[in-house]
């Protein structure tokens, strides 16, 4: 018997929301470090860009709020009034997990539930340290969830969760790069010019790639390398290349087990083949923003194709 569409859809969204919560957490953490803990505070621009990455700048401005560390940190973490906060992502993750509670192991459910409970009755982080503690707690549970998923049976349940994570991760990394790249590129200046070391470190922190960068590139921090790492190096789990590869692998596993393959598989394979040939240098030369914009759009199309293929409806 095939899995219920609703179950598959809940698992997929569970994966997306956990990944998103984790990403926002790392983004907030990196922004705090950039702005508050850095010897050269980046100021409100850093927080504005955090809003841009999560695509919540309009929602933030809607209530007449002005950008500042406290306001944005609060908005992105504990503000339950818009869907782009960690608390709302975890809420959605938990709702989806509850709906498929019997398909999950106790360990996986507990991790989600504990992450959700972090926010229970919490008024708000007061300062940068409190914010860091909060997002760190979320990341701990997210890692626990990740581990639990990998210890679950290798079947559709796991794969739909991981598929959701792969699609979400591709989107997050592309957005991060797109926004930061723009911010960093002063008008008229070419990429590869003056490097704001702190800003680029922020990006690496957000995708947990500071150490990986040092391993892979010997010549110090250079924007072209950071872009290369995040786009083309499939060794880095959060790179676009790795996300594309993972989507293909999971769809293959699903096809083998369920006999269902189609539009989403074709899209994923084509995308992966293209990514394998993509040279970051060429991307930079021909326009990184256009490349990322197209990637985000294609990823969204993948999302819809997955929904159609597995009849999420």
């Amino acid at each position: 018997m095939q899995m219920l569409s609703r179950t598959a859809s809940s698992l997929y969204w569970l994966g997306r929301y956990v990944e998103r919560a984790d990403f926002i957490g790392r983004l907030v953490e990196a922004t705090v470090r950039l702005d508050v803990l850095s010897p050269r505070p980046a100021g409100d621009a850093a927080w504005a860009s955090a809003l841009a990455v999560t695509d919540t700048d309009a929602a933030f401005a809607a209530n007449g709020r002005t950008v500042g560390p406290q306001e944005v940190a609060r908005f992105l973490t504990i503000d339950g009034c818009h869907p782009g906060s960690i608390v709302r992502c975890l809420d959605m993750a938990r709702n989806n997990a509850r709906a498929v509670r019997t398909a999950l192991t106790r360990e996986a459910w507990t991790a989600i539930n504990r992450a959700w409970l972090i926010f229970d009755k919490r008024a708000g982080p007061a300062g940068p340290m409190a914010t860091l503690n909060l997002v760190e707690a979320v990341q701990t549970e997210a890692r626990g969830f990740e581990g639990a998923i990998h210890r679950m049976l290798r079947n559709q349940t796991t794969w739909f969760i991981r598929l959701g994570q792969a699609v979400e991760r591709a989107d997050n990394t592309a957005r991060l790069l797109d926004v930061k790249y723009h911010l960093l590129l002063p008008a008229g200046e070419r990429v590869g010019g003056v490097v704001d070391r702190d800003q680029w470190t922020t990006i690496l922190q957000t995708v947990s790639a500071v150490t990986a960068y040092r391993w892979l590139y010997s010549e110090g921090l250079r924007p072209a390398n950071v872009i290369d790492l995040l786009i083309a190096r499939s060794e880095l789990p959060r790179s676009l290349a790795a996300s594309c590869e993972e989507a293909v692998d999971i769809l293959n596993l699903l096809a083998k087990r369920t006999g269902l393959h189609g539009e989403a598989d074709r899209m994923a394979r084509m995308r992966q083949a293209r990514m394998a040939k993509t040279k970051s240098g060429e991307v930079i030369a021909s326009g990184l923003h256009e490349f990322l914009k197209a990637f985000i759009e294609e990823n969204a199309q993948m999302h819809f194709a997955i929904g159609r293929q597995f009849k999420f409806g």
Partner: peptide, 22 residues
């Protein structure tokens, strides 16, 4: 299967459940 109402659909006086395979 444990289904909810939204998982079921009636067509031609027959009841079906929505699965990933149709």
């Amino acid at each position: 299967e444990l289904v909810e109402a939204a998982d079921l659909v009636v067509d031609d006086d027959k009841v079906f459940m929505r699965t990933i395979g149709g």
